[in-house]
């Protein structure tokens, strides 16, 4: 598990229940690990200065 865990186990279980995900048994442990790894992998997004930058939501290419 990453050292700077972004999500506690309790928060994980609460969110999983809210989303209707079965986290019983080994699958739940596997999912907790991949969630932690995924969120840790997104940490570097915080290092990008996005001040005054709008999200590229529509992503319409030129000509669209």
């Amino acid at each position: 598990m990453p050292e700077n865990s972004r999500l506690s186990k309790d928060a994980f279980l609460f969110m999983a229940a809210s989303a209707g995900i079965d986290v019983s048994g080994e699958h739940g442990e596997d999912l907790f690990a991949i969630v932690q790894a995924t969120l840790a992998g997104l940490d570097s997004l915080k290092d990008i200065d996005v001040t005054d930058t709008e999200p590229d939501m529509s992503f319409a290419p030129e000509g669209a």
Partner: peptide, 29 residues
């Protein structure tokens, strides 16, 4: 199982993280 894990893990990505990624996408582009 690996697909199930990835799909379920995606539900834990917050709207704030998603939108920050889209903001960063603007800069990347």
């Amino acid at each position: 199982p690996p697909i199930r894990l990835r799909l379920e893990a995606g539900l834990f990505i917050s709207s704030a993280d998603y939108l920050r990624a889209q903001q960063a996408r603007t800069l990347f582009d």
